[in-house]
């Protein structure tokens, strides 16, 4: 069953009751939302996402609900509970939806330490994946949203989830967060893009989310092999540049940007070193989305390199 198989009012009843167990890639999130008016937005963004009806072990229990009366009175009317404990908030219910999305990202960033977790967008074509590691504000969400509308499969706009045993990237297809000007950029780039309600007044300004294309969500169980590491940076009016970067620098860059690289110790190092070794590594500066798409479409599979010295 997918969320879209339910009506909005069925979705609302479930969110207000026991919750919906969303299956997003390898993770199961039990989601409860105690604000009836938000059900339509959850329904829109997660329309193609499967959920599990029978009882199962969940990874995250997330509840968006009003906080206790006293805190509500002076801090705001909404809060997010993780495993029953207030984790985000209290905050203004008017920004509850983007807060919920951030919290769901936070869960994936912090908990599943059986995987190596890198702050990065991941897109794939012909079984080969491009990892786009970048700090917030570099336009990686906008770029991967655009790529996902031009023949590349979106695995995630926020997280590269890497299985250390086989160095495969696991899809975590969730709504793509778009900020401020990016919202209109994507709407203009592809008028059919499923961009949801825009929420003004967050810490990052106005925020909207794009639902990933249905067939990308449907392929959530299909991992991809890393082929390229491309560090993107949007710069207004910049000419497009695409330069190789040394592998050692790429390794330090992804190590620095990963959430649990040091936590995984040797496993983290060996995993990233193997991936960097197998990938071609580049820095991309762009201002024109279509030119950036052109750069990706011109990528060739990485050349087999001589194995590095690891003694």
């Amino acid at each position: 069953m997918k969320v879209g198989d339910l009506s909005v009012s069925e979705t609302r009843d479930r969110l207000m009751g026991q919750g919906i167990r969303l299956r997003i890639g390898p993770m199961v999130t039990q989601l409860q939302v105690r604000f009836p008016n938000l059900a339509q937005h959850v329904h829109f963004l997660y329309k193609d996402t499967p959920f599990i009806d029978e009882p199962c072990i969940v990874d995250f229990e997330v509840k968006l609900a009003p906080p206790p009366a006293l805190r509500r009175w002076f801090q705001g009317g909404a809060a997010i509970y993780l495993d029953g404990i207030m984790n985000f908030g209290p905050f203004d219910p008017a920004i509850a939806m983007p807060m919920l999305e951030w919290c769901l990202n936070g869960c994936v960033f912090n908990r599943p330490n059986q995987y190596l977790i890198l702050h990065s967008a991941v897109i794939e074509r012909d079984g080969r994946a491009a990892i786009l590691p970048a700090p917030p504000g570099t336009g990686k969400s906008t770029l991967c949203a655009a790529m996902s509308l031009r023949g590349w499969r979106l695995l995630s706009d926020e997280v590269a989830m890497i299985r250390p045993s086989d160095k495969q990237l696991l899809p975590v297809p969730r709504p793509v967060g778009l900020k401020e000007g990016s919202i209109d950029v994507i709407k203009r780039f592809e008028p059919t893009a499923a961009v949801g309600h825009a929420w003004p007044g967050t810490r990052k300004g106005t925020v909207a989310h794009m639902r990933p294309p249905a067939d990308h969500v449907a392929r959530a169980d299909e991992p991809a092999t890393p082929a390229w590491i491309i560090c993107p940076r949007y710069e207004a009016d910049a000419a497009t540049t695409f330069e190789p970067i040394p592998k050692a620098d790429a390794l330090l860059y992804v190590a620095h940007d990963a959430f649990n690289y040091s936590l995984l110790g040797t496993t983290g190092f060996e995993t990233f070193a193997d991936i960097v070794d197998a990938c071609d590594c580049y820095a991309l500066v762009y201002s024109d989305l279509n030119e950036a798409v052109g750069v990706f479409n011109a990528l060739t599979p990485p050349r087999a390199t001589a194995h590095p010295d690891r003694s």
Binding site: P26, I57, D59, P112, N113, Q114, S262, L263, L264, G265
Partner: peptide
């Protein structure tokens, strides 16, 4: 269940780091 083992593995990764 595999999910339970995943939870153990994730928690043990943190504990292993604490030990290091």
């Amino acid at each position: 269940p595999g999910k339970a083992r995943d939870h153990f593995t994730a928690a043990q990764a943190i504990a292993t780091q604490h030990q290091r």
